[in-house]
Design a binder for these strands. Structure first.
Lengths: 187, 187
DNA sequence: GTCTATAGAGCGATAGAC
DNA sequence: GTCTATCGCTCTATAGAC
């Protein structure tokens, strides 16, 4: 055959991830990705029908990695879960962004997202009991927000001494609040 | 004079705000903005040296509006402050985004941001006392995160019944947690 | 399955006339 | 201060040869 396969979907994804981390979601172009793989841009369309589909595949990859990370948390302490979540978001910001904002996932791809949600709800059961879903959403929102604040650089503003290490402080406040709302469950 | 002034900085900003809300930060183009004002793209450069400078001016405008909204909150209840913050972020999402992510502000422009910070810290003094800065950052992070979650559509996922109305729930948890950490200040 | 070539569109910013 | 004209660059996606 005159044109043997030079690549495959896995290879393309593997090249897309570090490139995404460098240039961000909006900056990732099929042209640059193809060049990195020493291909013409057109070749990628054999494996992904559109740029959007490729990004969706990367988002699923990100969700799977995050799931694996969170599954590694042992015990009932939500702080361990939070620590791992923050580590992923901080060390792979563009991947985390894509995971949070990608809205072109099909039903099959959404399953990983569901697994993540269920894992967190299950881990918060000992702390929050029947309020576990609400607690999970609250914790998720808090962590997601702190990641955003850290990234926007509000800690670096020298003129209005922002407190350092607030992320941990807030987490303790949150856990304390959950405990106080469930004195029976968590005596 | 053959070419009298057809516009000014205020008018340009006034046109930029609704256009930003429609197309988002990345989608705002000088060409479209100029067309809206019935000008050629080049005319805008008399009033703003670059697209980035124009966006910075809009971000400051956004911060000023948010400050005015928050100043309208009376009493010591953080829920009122939170309600107004959420209302701004929900009703003017692109403006809120720009306010949170714009990183090309000069020192003068950053002053409004400082005023916002100081207002929140002051309002949280009765609740958190000496921990007021940490409490402010925690509350800010939580609200910012919930805005992001709401926007990413996690509440709409039908397959994994996410709890509704969690934003209020989490706020109460947060306040309860702050109270429990400061039993002396808030008996 | 990859290639060349191109369609078709977008953008920020600048030069110089008036 | 606004205009015309343009530079120089970006991109996704498609058509058809091999």
């Amino acid at each position: 055959m005159p044109y043997p396969a030079k690549t495959n979907a896995e290879q393309i994804l593997a090249a897309a991830v570090p490139m995404l981390e460098q240039v961000g979601q909006a900056g990732l172009s099929l042209r640059a990705l193809a060049a990195e793989l020493k291909l013409t841009p057109n070749a990628l369309y054999r494996y992904f029908p559109s740029r959007e589909a490729l990004l969706a595949a990367v988002a699923v990859q990100a969700a799977e990695w995050l799931l694996t990370d969170l599954q590694g948390a042992t015990g009932d302490d939500p702080a361990e879960l939070a620590r791992r979540y923050l580590h992923f978001a901080r060390t792979r910001p563009a991947l985390y962004d894509l995971y949070m904002t990608c809205d072109s996932l099909n039903a099959e791809q959404l399953r990983v997202y569901g697994q993540l949600w269920e894992l967190v709800v299950a881990r918060l059961l000992p702390l929050a009991g029947p309020f576990s879903p609400q607690a999970a959403m609250t914790l998720w929102g808090y962590l997601h927000g702190m990641v955003g604040l850290e990234r926007s650089g509000v800690y670096d503003d020298p003129s209005h001494d922002k407190p350092r290490g607030t992320t941990t402080f807030g987490l303790e406040v949150l856990v304390a609040g959950l405990r106080s709302l469930n004195p029976v469950i968590c005596p």
